[in-house]
Simulated scan of single mutants.
Amino acid sequence: MTLPISVQLYTVRDELAADRDAVLRRIAEIGYRAVEPYDPTTDPEGFRRVADDLGLTVSSTHAYALLSQEPAKVFDAIATVGTDKVIIPGGIAEEEFTTRDGLARTADLLNGLAEQAAGHGMRIGYHNHWWEIEPRVDGRHAIEVLADLLAPEVFLEIDTYWAAVGGADVPALLGRLAERIEALHVKDGPGIKGEPHVAVGAGVMPVPAILAAAPGAWRIVELDECATDVFTALADSHAYLTSLESS
């Protein structure tokens, strides 16, 4: 069965700060059946209550907090939010992805977090931007070398847009990393750093080929910055991805 389409809530961070419950309701009304929080430590009980009422599954969560807060408290919050997939979405110096030694240190960090997560029945993943893709280490994208150094239980959430901006042939990269990938950030735009994103299907990304390369992964829509009304872009993205499923 195809996993429901999710949305990274960083997309609507400003709107969430103003009225979380109304935003989650609007996301559900668009047709999304899953969400990915970016800060599970903010009122996890209240978030879970509203998500349950709206029938929203938590596909996974980002957790910058693991790099700065007491891990046990963060894992407790994540358990309340309701997922076992915990993703580190950055917070590691970009320079660490330019050398094999830096990648080894990064792998040690992620593997250590994975050991802690296992004690809470959870798993750790890593989410890329362009700086894990642009550097070439031993002739490969840095994230590919990193993947070889990660413990077997550590997974990847590939941000397909930033992978393209970083110079990757995204479907080919997904094929090479297939065993590690459990989630995709599906986004679209002009493919240029600093330019705002657009609804999935309205930019330059080869979305059908990307999805075909990782058919079992969660598809998580995200717009870091939006060139149009953000809820219109989320609705158009959902409609487009749903049309691909039925075609």
Rank of each mutant, 00 (worst) to 15 (best):
P44E: 07
V58Q: 02
R26Q: 12
T57E: 15
R48Q: 05
V50K: 12
E36S: 02
R26D: 09
K73L: 11
V35L: 03
E29A: 14
Q69R: 15
A51C: 07
E36P: 05
A34P: 11
D52A: 14
Y32I: 03
T57P: 02
V23F: 05
Y32G: 02
A72H: 07
D43K: 04
D39G: 12
E45F: 05
V35D: 01
Y64A: 15
V35A: 05
R25M: 06
A65N: 14
A22Q: 12
F47M: 06
Q69N: 15
L67H: 10
G31E: 10
G31I: 09
A34E: 11
S59Y: 04
A28N: 09
L67V: 12
G31D: 11
T41A: 07
S60N: 03
G55Q: 08
L66W: 04
L24T: 00
V23K: 00
V50N: 03
P71C: 02
V50I: 14
L54D: 03
I27Q: 06
E36M: 06
A72M: 03
L56P: 08
R49Y: 01
I27W: 02
I27C: 06
L24S: 03
V35G: 06
R25C: 10
R48K: 13
R49E: 13
I27A: 05
D39K: 13
P44K: 10
A72V: 01
G55R: 09
R49K: 14
S60A: 15
V74N: 01
G55K: 10
L24A: 03
L66V: 11
P44N: 08
V35H: 01
L54E: 06
E29M: 07
S68Q: 14
Q69T: 08
V58G: 04
P71V: 01
G31C: 10
I30W: 09
R26I: 00
Y38M: 15
T41M: 09
A51W: 00
S60G: 06
R26E: 13
P71Q: 02
G55L: 11
S60Y: 00
Y38H: 14
K73D: 14
Q69D: 15
P40N: 13
L67M: 14
L66N: 05
T42G: 04
E45I: 09
D39F: 13
G55T: 13
R33Y: 06
P37F: 06
L56E: 11
E70K: 07
L56M: 12
F47A: 04
D43A: 09
F47S: 01
A72F: 01
A72P: 01
S59C: 13
V58N: 04
D53R: 15
P44T: 09
G46E: 06
P44W: 05
D52T: 14
P37L: 12
V74C: 09
L67T: 11
V35S: 03
A65M: 10
G46C: 05
K73I: 00
D43T: 06
A22L: 07
L67A: 14
S59D: 05
L54K: 01
H62P: 12
A34G: 13
A28F: 05
A63W: 07
D52S: 13
Q69M: 12
V35C: 08
P44I: 08
D43C: 01
L56F: 14
Y38P: 02
S59N: 08
V35F: 02
G55N: 11
A65L: 10
R25S: 15
H62Q: 15
L24D: 00
T41H: 06
V74D: 00
S59A: 15
E29Q: 15
S59E: 05
H62E: 11
R48G: 04
R26K: 12
I27E: 04
P71M: 02
A34M: 10
